[in-house]
Design a protein around this nucleic acid. Structure first.
Lengths: 186, 186
DNA sequence: GTCTATATGTCGATAGAC
DNA sequence: GTCTATCGACATATAGAC
């Protein structure tokens, strides 16, 4: 119905799977079915569109991580559910791909939107690590922020390696290895 | 002296720090000081140049990891040295950035060169994990390949998160968290 | 091997009518 | 809000002389 929304939804998918700098406005028009005049009416510049896309993809990702953790009994279970979010790695992380895109990093606003998304995700994971320390599902002594940062990095790296090798198994090995490091300590 | 070498050296740095799709032949010419005629004589196509660049950057990376590990007493020390290779994360991984570049992934040859580089690095790390299990610096029971994959992912993810936040500290936290998971088990 | 000139397409937009 | 036409810049080469 709303062309503005159609544009954002297409751009979210295309920037996610195909990259920001390597996706043209024309491709977004074709995918969304919105004409050129309408497109530039709603989004006069490509970075302006990216600003909304990054923010929404960040929120979507945090929401899906929360949903995946929902109802799991222990903190460690919830961390395992986060690790499993690299289960479809070949498509790439909803926000991770922006970190290597020079067109994103060159624009201060976009870089900040990206940084905020990662900071929020790291904060969420830090809370869950704390819960896991409290409920005894992780052994005491671990630093919550550093442990959370390591788990976030494992997942982001799993996306990178899987896309580089073209094998989902590359991601699965990485997350399994990380889980084993958590579990074996308990 | 050798223009062909000048081109490769410039392209290695530019593709590494600025990305493949977001770096034009013209930028490589400017950086290397090689003229257009000479450039296209040596590299008729951009993917052809990328092929050599990816292979060399992969070899350089493996060599620098080996060098960083050189002479360290235990396997775990050598793995810690690998984790420290995310010590200058804002510039990006020498090969990790290619994994999110649609221009790379679309070309079969380039994707394979990239996959080979990662596979070799994973193999090297797997060997070191085995050595660590043998010398007792890591506790028994860990799967060598999965543990190596997890450590590789931590480093690749540390690059991603640090670039996204613009903070080297984001990478340092991740690698410190990973090291703590290894060390606390010992 | 290296040079300058030219070609062809796409990118990211702008103009102006409806 | 949406349409079609147009635009200047740049990307990625190619042509042909030296």
């Amino acid at each position: 119905m709303d062309n503005r929304r159609r544009i954002i939804d297409s751009a979210k998918r295309l920037f996610w799977h195909h990259g920001y700098s390597t996706t043209s406005p024309k491709q977004v028009m074709a995918d969304s079915g919105v004409g050129q005049g309408s497109f530039y009416h709603h989004f006069p510049t490509k970075p302006g569109l990216a600003q909304e896309v990054i923010a929404e993809n960040g929120r979507d990702l945090v929401a899906s991580v929360r949903a995946a953790m929902q109802g799991l009994p222990t903190g460690r279970d919830r961390l395992a559910a986060f690790l499993a979010s690299a289960g479809d790695a070949l498509g790439g992380c909803q926000i991770g791909g922006f970190a290597y895109d020079a067109g994103i990093l060159a624009e201060t606003d976009l870089r900040e939107a990206l940084g905020s998304a990662f900071t929020e995700l790291a904060g969420l994971l830090t809370d869950v690590v704390r819960e896991a320390l409290d409920d005894g599902s992780l052994p005491p002594g671990l630093d919550p922020a550093k442990t959370a940062a390591a788990l976030l990095a494992v997942v982001e790296g799993a996306f990178v390696v899987a896309r580089a090798t073209g094998r989902q198994a590359s991601a699965d090995e990485a997350t399994a290895g990380a889980l084993a490091l958590l579990v074996a300590k308990g």
